[in-house]
């Protein structure tokens, strides 16, 4: 078996080659990065315009929402950068090219996802970091070493939540003919993650907390930093949500991989 270190080394080798190949299309990379940048700021733009007419949204100030948004942008970046290949899974499954992933002595999820490294996602990540720092300066948040460690831990967990939701939707490809609508729906849901969850009523808040836990992508973990005095101590266990969910996703992926029978061509 390979150790984690082997995998890391392997990943760098694969991505180095991938990036070299992609750099042939430099114009595409630049345009895509610009597009990525603006499209990831769209919801924030909507909030900005709305706050022209109102002082607060369900008790949240604009700057607090900016903080949540920065958190959100960082949290969705690992999905974009490292797991982007999930969008192609329906082609591979339909056309039988998925079979090749069975024939390497490597973890299949690792091998499959390593085939794509979305460089333009780095723009999103960078924008998210700038927004988060800007908002936390404006809000005058205090950062100790422990708080920074907590931030990194919650970001790690939040990004696992986002990865899990999307990858699980992509796994539908193993059982239905066209997983695109399922993935599209999961992608649309993602846009709601930076909304304050307290605007929702019972059933929706329940669903976004326990069923499709979008709230854990940005809103709940952000509260640990925006209102540390008010959050329930349970929230400090929220990092477990991401890890648990990813374990579940990995299990679903394994089920799918084991049930796939190829296309016979």
């Amino acid at each position: 078996m390979h150790s984690l270190l082997d995998y890391l080394r392997l990943y760098f080798i694969i991505e180095a080659q991938y990036i070299k190949a992609r750099m042939q299309y430099r114009a595409d990379f630049i345009i895509s990065s610009i597009g990525m940048f603006f499209s990831s700021l769209a919801t924030l733009g909507v909030f900005w315009i709305i706050f022209d007419s109102i002082p607060d949204l369900a008790g949240w100030t604009f700057m607090q929402l900016v903080f949540i948004y920065g958190f959100y942008m960082i949290a969705i970046s690992p999905m974009q950068i490292l797991f982007d290949h999930i969008w192609q899974i329906r082609f591979h499954v339909q056309q039988g090219t998925f079979l090749k992933y069975y024939f390497r002595p490597l973890n299949m999820m690792f091998y499959y996802m390593s085939e794509m490294f979305d460089i333009k996602g780095l723009t999103q990540l960078a924008a998210g970091v700038v927004i988060l720092i800007y908002a936390s300066l404006q809000l005058g948040l205090e950062w100790t070493l422990a708080r920074i460690a907590l931030l990194l831990l919650t970001l790690f967990s939040a990004s696992l939540v986002q990865i899990s939701i999307t990858v699980m939707a992509g796994c539908a490809a193993f059982w239905v003919l066209d997983a695109y609508p399922v993935l599209g729906l999961a992608w649309k849901l993602r846009e709601f993650a930076p909304y304050p969850m307290n605007i929702f009523d019972g059933a929706f808040r329940f669903a976004f907390t326990y069923i499709i836990p979008l709230g854990f992508v940005a809103f709940y973990p952000s509260q640990l930093f925006l209102q540390p005095q008010d959050v329930s101590p349970l929230m400090y266990f929220s990092p477990l949500v991401g890890i648990g969910l990813f374990a579940l996703t990995y299990w679903v992926w394994t089920l799918g991989v084991n049930s796939y029978t190829g296309t016979g061509s």
């Binding site: 299309y25 114009a27 595409d28 990379f29 630049i30 345009i31 895509s32 990065s33 610009i34 597009g35 990525m36 603006f38 499209s39 769209a42 733009g45 909507v46 333009k120």
Partner: peptide, 18 residues
């Protein structure tokens, strides 16, 4: 001219929708 679409299309989408 570009022979690629993702970036152009997504930029257009965002300009139009906003």
């Amino acid at each position: 001219y570009t022979e690629s679409i993702w970036g152009l299309s997504i930029t257009k989408d965002i300009i139009v929708t906003v």
